[in-house]
Write a protein that binds this DNA or RNA. Structure first.
Length: 498
RNA sequence: GGCCCCAUGGUCAAGUGGUUAAGACGUCGCGUUCUCAGCGCGGAAUCGAGGGUUCGACUCCCUCUGGGGCUACCA
């Protein structure tokens, strides 16, 4: 580890780990690990009203699940702690710098009520002006201003602290992903709040203080922070601090709405947790997310975290927003599921057990059989492990309905002939016949009756499994219990053929 | 409205002045096969539009159009 590269992921515990956050975390991790730097996690919990119960814990847990680790965090204190802003605030870390700005006259106390602010804003909008904070102490001396403060205090008003924006300045930086960007100070909307009435610092202020104190060298974050950057640069400047390098990554877009992926979009699964429950693999999530807004040199698409780490190059970060492509995620997960079946098998067992198709004990007892069932049922076609349930249910655990179409196959002239021949042949076969034997038996019927294709296979398939389509029939027959199949056949015969 | 960013097929994207414009997902077709899945093969973009610059532009510049982000005592 070197101190040259110190990056951080700074979530606020207002919800569970979101795909967009996971991506920010992943790229920061990649950046840190690729350059042998330090990866810091800082919790930005300055909005107590929005913090949720298990937000922090759940986010960290899901980050771990994704295979990310960190060097400094609330649960792993380093030398720049604490790592929660609420705790840092309690220690007066922000207050110190707020006082400094106040003393230097670079910030001031403002007592305007939210009603006043709303009025001002409404008036400006009505006049077709951009909303812009109106400085209330224009032309006053320090003493006069202090006197006003005292007045307001006497009225019982609580102040916020606003930063006095140097309107004439222009802030510019060379963005790691977007290149040169410059934004005039007057565009930030006027003097902005650095400390709320409840004493908490605001995001744009705390982030600067913390990034500086934690010696963060590179800030990789979402595009949506571009317009915050000038605000933050003002603080660095006012406090005489060096500015870190910024990199603003393109956003992940909801394909349906075309907008930034939002927690309120119900048409897309938003949270890592949800994918985890469906049986997506962490490797697949990393793989997919790592390819959203970033591309490797070659033509391969399947990469492990370790490979991403080796290849990582911040210059290959994309500038354009990327739509979230669920289909591609499914394909990538399929690739990871198939990559190492033995590793996935326990998860598949769990899904089948959870669905109530088999008990845990029974699954263990018949593990070899269940493994075969999973394989034959078509595990190679699933997108996530939970899908295996629907694949194995019929005919291995339950029988489906016999549809009209199936009855037609069964009761046709060919169907009846095939059924009789099959019943005779199958009954005569040993209980442990293998797939080759079943295949040969069916081929034999084909030769004898000169019936082939669907007219041959469907009646047998339907009589034994109640299915008209499914995995290879001979392979299924090997896995099905012969007495049960005979019973199924007898029932079908009694109901439709007699 | 203002400011900022972006623009190669449905999607993710490679490509940094001269290429038959990679690859992947998805999709369509064909093949394998009783069917499904899988697998194999194949089809589909002239690079948002219009101007420039250049012997030559997907690649550079400008304008337009389109999309996105921000515009809180949220982060």
């Amino acid at each position: 580890m070197t101190d040259d590269f110190r990056v951080r992921y700074a979530p606020s515990p207002t919800g569970y780990l979101h795909i967009g956050n996971a991506r920010t975390a992943l790229f920061n991790w990649l950046f840190a690990r690729h350059y042998n730097g330090t990866f810091v996690i800082r919790i930005e919990d300055t909005d107590s009203a929005r913090n949720i119960e298990n937000g922090e814990q759940s986010q960290l847990e899901n980050l771990k699940w994704l295979g990310l680790d960190w060097d400094e965090a609330p649960d792993k204190p380093g030398q720049y702690g604490p790592y929660r802003q609420s705790e840092r605030n309690e220690q007066g870390i922000y207050q110190e710098f707020i006082d400094e700005l106040l003393a230097k006259g670079l910030a001031y106390k403002s007592y305007k009520t939210s009603e006043q602010l709303a009025e001002e804003r409404a008036a400006q909008q009505a006049a077709k002006q951009a909303p812009h904070y109106i400085y209330e102490y224009e032309g006053l001396t320090n003493e006069e201003r202090e006197a006003k403060y005292a007045d307001f205090e006497a009225q019982g008003l609580k102040p916020v602290v606003r930063f006095r924006v140097p309107e004439e300045k222009v802030y510019a930086w060379d963005d790691i992903v977007k290149g040169h960007i410059e934004i005039g100070a007057k565009e930030v909307g006027g003097d902005w709040v650095i400390q709320k009435a409840d004493g908490m610092p605001t995001y744009n202020f705390a982030v600067v203080v913390d990034d500086h104190l934690m010696k963060i060298s590179h800030v990789l974050r979402g595009d949506d922070h571009v317009s915050n950057t000038p605000k933050q640069m003002m603080i660095y400047e006012a406090l005489g601090w060096d500015v870190p390098k910024f990199g603003h990554m393109a956003l992940i877009i909801n394909g349906a709405t075309g907008k930034k992926l939002s927690k309120r979009d119900n048409d897309v699964l938003q949270f890592v947790e949800q994918y985890r429950e469906l049986g997506y693999q962490p490797e697949a999530m990393d793989n997919f997310i790592g390819l959203l807004g970033w591309s490797p040199k070659g033509e391969d698409e399947i990469f492990s975290l370790e490979e991403f780490k080796e290849m990582f190059d911040e210059h290959r970060l994309s500038k354009a927003n990327a739509k979230f492509d669920q289909k591609k995620l499914e394909w990538i997960n399929n690739q990871w599921i198939r990559k190492d079946k033995d590793r996935i098998m326990p998860q598949l067992f769990d899904q089948i057990i959870a669905a109530g198709l088999i008990s845990k004990e029974e699954a263990e007892k018949r593990a070899d059989w269940l493994k075969e069932v999973i394989e034959v049922a078509g595990v190679d076609g699933i997108s996530y492990t939970k899908q295996i349930v629907d694949l194995v249910r019929e005919p291995f655990f339950q029988l489906g309905e016999v549809t009209d179409e199936m009855v037609d196959y069964l009761t046709s002239e060919d169907g009846r002939k095939v059924y009789d021949a099959w019943e005779k042949a199958y009954t005569a076969l040993p209980d442990d016949a293998d797939a080759g034997t079943y295949m040969a038996t069916i081929r034999g019927i084909q030769n004898d009756l000169e019936i082939k294709g669907r007219n041959l296979w469907n009646p047998i398939r339907i009589a034994t499994t109640h299915q008209i389509q499914g995995p290879n029939l001979p392979e299924m027959l090997v896995l099905l219990d012969k007495p049960a199949v005979l019973k199924t056949m007898a029932d079908v015969k009694a109901k439709y053929l007699d």
